Simulated assay, not measured.
Amino acid sequence: MPTVLRQLWHLPAPAPTDDARAARLELGLVVYFAVAGVLEALLTTPAPAWRWVSLGALLVWLPTLFVRRTRPLVPVVVFTAGAVVTAAVGQVSGTQPGDLSAAVVALVIPYSLARWAPGREAVIGLGLFALVAGTSLVVQDLPTGDRLGGSAVVVTAVALGALLRSRALLQARRLVDVRRDERDRLARDLHDTVAHHLTAIAISAQAGLAVADSDPEAAKKALRRIDEEASRTLAETRTVVRALRDDAAAPDRPLDDLAGLARTGDDGPAVDVRLDGVDDLSPTTAAALHRIAQEAVSNARRHALHATRVDVRVARRGADVELTVHDDGRGQPTHGEGYGIVGMTERATLLGGTLTAGSAPDGGWTVRAVLPAGTVDAR
């Protein structure tokens, strides 16, 4: 048991889901229970003893829900303080303030602690909440069934928070694995590209040495070839290595493989590939286009509902090259858990490009990537 508690104590906090949707949810929760508490205090007959004390404690505590994702210990501390105040009022007055039914919202405290708090805060916060809730269950004159039911609800809230926390951590770990794998594949592509250029440099150097004495002009041509290949190698290396600091051979014309994605519709949607003005692309960019198109076509053939055709278009757009993969599927597409899109986006981003994926206005699903076409001369 001490080992389990020690591991729980040092458990890191998951990344909070701090977005506009979450903010709207918190606002709705606070407003709803504030209104419910006020109406209960005004309209309940007979009125709970010292109802304004209970209502005041609730209204002071409710705004702390806005930080329950980022600072989950704050709500339980304020809640505990409110419980101490109401208990003190009961001791002085001889009449325990009646609980408001709206106070059931306090169940978000154990859930929030299990879902978002780092281990140390979760242990402290759950201990405080258990002390307050346990005291309330013991002090109040409740049937045994109600005490057991209340305890079960609290345990369920903790279990639900822990379950969703584990699921979020697992998903985050899978996303990290996808990005790492994509970086590894990109590093291999870079290695293959550099190896190709270095081989050309070595051959040109050997040829230049062989004819240096007998044919100086041929030796100069070999030197120029070495210079060009070295410049290409430097350009390719600089393009990718900046993104690979955390640390299948590429063909001479990677877009040949991209064109090979075309197929008839015998065993699924037909795939049509068209390339426009992309013969002089950087090998790294061409390889990235092939990888992205391959993943996008695979996703379309597996997940697009009722699709009969997948169009792949690659075209130059000034200094960039644009890849568009569009299917004519109908209905709601099922693109799995989106890890393929994560990998495609990571590859495009690493090369200084962008990638978007989503439903097209005229139906179907479209993946669009824009990458730098690459330069040959990096001098």
Score class of each variant (00 low, 15 high):
Pro14Leu: 02
Pro14Thr: 01
Asp18Gln: 11
Ala20Arg: 15
Arg21Gln: 08
Ala22Asp: 11
Leu25Arg: 12
Leu29Pro: 12
Ala34Leu: 11
Thr44Asp: 13
Trp50Glu: 15
Trp52Arg: 08
Val53Arg: 03
Ser54Trp: 01
Ala57His: 00
Leu62Trp: 02
Pro63Phe: 05
Thr64Gln: 04
Phe66Ser: 02
Leu73His: 12
Val74Leu: 14
Ala81Gln: 01
Ala83Cys: 00
Ala83His: 00
Ala83Glu: 01
Ala88Phe: 13
Val89Ile: 15
Thr95Asp: 11
Thr95Asn: 07
Asp99Gly: 04
Ala102Ile: 09
Ala106Ile: 01
Val108Phe: 14
Arg115Phe: 07
Ala117Cys: 07
Pro118Lys: 02
Gly119Asn: 05
Gly125Ile: 00
Leu128Pro: 08
Phe129Thr: 01
Leu137Ala: 13
Val158Asn: 01
Leu163Cys: 06
Ser166Trp: 10
Ala168Asp: 11
Ala168Gln: 03
Leu170Met: 11
Gln171Lys: 07
Gln171Trp: 03
Val176Arg: 12
Arg179Ser: 11
Arg179Ile: 09
Arg179Cys: 13
Asp181Pro: 05
Arg183Tyr: 04
Asp184Gly: 03
Asp192Arg: 03
Thr193Gly: 04
Val194Pro: 07
Val211Ala: 05
Val211Ile: 10
Asp213Ser: 09
Pro216Gln: 10
Ala218Glu: 08
Ala222Ile: 00
Ala222Cys: 04
Asp227Asn: 06
Arg232Leu: 13
Arg232His: 11
Thr233Trp: 00
Ala235Gly: 11
Ala235Thr: 14
Arg238Asn: 11
Val240Asp: 02
Val241Asn: 03
Leu244Tyr: 06
Arg245Ser: 03
Ala248Met: 14
Ala248Ser: 15
Arg253Cys: 13
Asp256Gln: 10
Ala259Lys: 14
Leu261Val: 12
Ala262Phe: 11
Arg263Gly: 10
Arg263Asp: 01
Thr264Tyr: 09
Thr264Met: 08
Gly265Met: 11
Gly265Gln: 12
Pro269His: 00
Pro269Ser: 00
Leu275Ser: 09
Asp280Arg: 15
Leu281Arg: 14
Pro283Ile: 08
Thr285Lys: 08
Arg291Phe: 01
Asn299Gln: 09
Arg301Tyr: 00
Thr308Tyr: 05
Arg309Glu: 13
Val312His: 02
Val312Phe: 05
Arg313Leu: 03
Arg316Phe: 02
Asp320His: 14
Leu323Gln: 07
Asp327Asn: 04
Asp328Arg: 05
His335Gln: 09
Gly336Val: 12
Glu337Pro: 01
Tyr339Glu: 06
Ile341Tyr: 07
Thr349His: 12
Thr349Asn: 06
Ala357Ser: 12
Asp362Cys: 07
Gly363Trp: 01
Val367Ala: 05
Leu371Tyr: 08
Asp377Trp: 10
